[in-house]
Simulated assay, not measured.
Amino acid sequence: MKTVLTSLLLIGAILPMGAHSHEKPQLPAGPYLGQTPPGLTPEVFAPGVVSTPDWGDAGRFSPDMKAFYVQRWRSKDGERQKQALTFTQTPEGWQRIEVPGRPRIPFVAPDGQTRHFANQYQRRTEDGWSEMQSIGSAFEGFRIMSLTVSAQGTYVFDEIGTNGNGLLRYSRWVDGKRHDPKPFGKAINTGTWNAHPYIAPDESYIMWDGERDSGFGSSDLYISFRQADGAWGEAINLGERVNTAAEEGGPMITPDGKYLFFNRMVKPASGDGEAQSDLFWVDARFIDALRPQ
């Protein structure tokens, strides 16, 4: 299990060394890479451009939604291949930029001033981005795949597990001090393969993927809402609107709060070969209906 989802991992004012772009925009102008927004039924995002048949694809927007970061992977001739792209918005349209050597998609903090790569980060500077720095010795013992940050500075992250183990953890920033990470309780850390968390900027909910006996098959998407006393509520399956018997994972809400992005393992249209990860999006309004009253 956890085949492609385990691989879910801003370009600054200056392009990274080795980055190069196409001369003409690859997509029309307008928000969301010029794509027509979906309704309450998930659709493949930017088919043929972002979601491609030959690659597993993952992506997310920058906080200002003027850049979209894509990471791809595939096996070819027995070798693991990766590709990193950034689509930047221009008056003429969205321009595709190739970024060789980028190991994963960064998670950029809501204020746009810090971008995180697992247990390392960079700060925005006048010239672009600082050198990579450790988020702290307390995190070095974890093999982090995905780390997200709230507007209050709370970290929520996973770790690469084996045989279904691995916990979701959090670390709060309080009075100018980073607290040591702690595991969430059983409301969240139940079942297996809990991974790829996303914390809302206002910390009102957490989303992630995992496997539970009550699920739809393989990994499903779950949400836990923060309760009035500050505790996290029981995990709620996002339901058949999003989850299927296939493997879903990597939930992420767009910075404007309007759309849920996630990955789903999809068989090739021909029916031959292994399932590959495609990026989907759906109107996020249905999430409010899941919130306990």
Rank of each mutant, 00 (worst) to 15 (best):
A187Q: 10
W129P: 06
M132Y: 12
F139Q: 02
S150Y: 08
W129S: 13
F157H: 12
H179K: 13
S150R: 11
E211M: 02
R178D: 02
S204R: 13
G128W: 05
G141N: 12
S214H: 11
R169V: 06
Q120H: 15
R143C: 01
Y155W: 14
R124G: 07
A195I: 00
A200Y: 04
Y155H: 15
I188M: 14
Q133G: 09
R169P: 07
G176K: 11
T192M: 13
D213C: 00
R143I: 01
A151S: 15
F139A: 01
G185H: 11
S214Y: 10
E131L: 14
Y205H: 11
V149M: 14
W193Q: 08
D158Q: 02
R124E: 11
T190Q: 09
G166M: 00
E159A: 13
D180W: 02
H196I: 07
K182T: 10
G136F: 10
N163F: 09
E159I: 09
E140D: 10
A138L: 08
S214V: 11
Y198S: 11
K186I: 13
G166H: 01
D127E: 15
D180G: 01
R178M: 12
M207A: 12
W173L: 12
I135F: 04
D158F: 02
I135M: 11
I160S: 04
G128D: 11
K186R: 14
A138E: 13
G185C: 14
